[in-house]
Design a protein around this nucleic acid. Structure first.
Lengths: 152, 152
DNA sequence: ATTGAAAATGAAAGTCGTTTTCAATTGGCG
DNA sequence: CGCCAATTGAAAACGACTTTCATTTTCAAT
């Protein structure tokens, strides 16, 4: 890891090592804040911006990439060898992964048809996970009842 | 249109009608600001928040949905009968649509395998369109050279 | 080991899209 | 017509993200 940084011309600092370690010790789909909290547990002196910058650096190094569901919070997903998409539960905000290897071919082909050269993808399926199926269903104005949940 | 609003319990106002009309007269992937500008051309008295709220309303009514590429700006895409994904050009920020009908089946199936009930999807392929293929390629630290574009 | 240039850090402030507040206005059913 | 709730517009609040800047630290070359 140090070597990877070195070869790219980045310096190794205690904070940087800590942040990198924490990032990789956390699960997938980490938010800046989650990482920040984790880092602060081990070293409360590390600043917000340092965590943020190093998370960006991790992305620059190709070790992770941003995942952007629609809630305004960027998550960072460790890059993994196999392509995957995400199931996003509208209720509990859980993010489940699923394999998309079987559809990548068709997508790349579709891209090439319009002379588009893909170098990244984002496949997200929204809905409700098994735990939340019977729970609340926000934003159903489109399907029937209205006059609710608007000024609550 | 008035009837749709009426039946859902919403009132018809001049501003609302104007905003709705403008939204549907604009192409796809409209940003709040684009819509705001368009509306202001026809009625400079309409407020920012009114445009914004009515855009949300359009979404609530199921007439459009948010598209969130990673640039921090929410676009609004008229819902169309056929499912489609987006090609997003990293260089010129263009958004091209493509048909995803052929892969939806596999995705829904994958969802059901983990007891997930999908009610929405978001398929985005990033890369470079034919116009931008030979142009700049940001964020290539992952693939080779580094020490550039970081403090420029 | 020492040094000095470049990079990294941390606190704080800035940016910017989005969302809420609130007083004033307006639509539409009765 | 008249009322009441919905709507509006200006402005402020919000919050995630990003930058600034003075200080500290790393590390390659002494």
């Amino acid at each position: 890891m140090k070597e990877l940084l070195r070869t790219k011309g980045f310096k190794t600092t205690p904070q940087r090592e800590l942040i990198f370690d924490c990032f990789f010790s956390l699960g997938k789909h980490v938010t800046v804040d989650e990482l920040y909290q984790k880092v602060r547990e081990l070293d409360p002196s590390v600043g917000h911006s340092t965590v943020w910058r190093n998370l960006k650096l991790i992305c620059q190094l190709g070790l992770a990439e941003e995942v952007n569901i629609g809630d305004g919070i960027t998550r960072y997903d460790r890059t993994t060898p196999k392509p995957h998409g995400h199931f996003f539960c509208r209720s509990c905000k859980k993010l489940l992964e699923f394999d998309v290897g079987s559809v990548m071919g068709a997508l790349v082909e579709a891209a090439h048809e319009v002379k588009f050269e893909p170098d990244g993808y984002k496949i997200e399926i929204q809905g409700y996970c098994s735990d939340c199926r019977q729970a609340s269903r926000p934003n159903d104005a489109a399907t029937g009842s209205a006059n609710d949940e608007r000024k609550a």
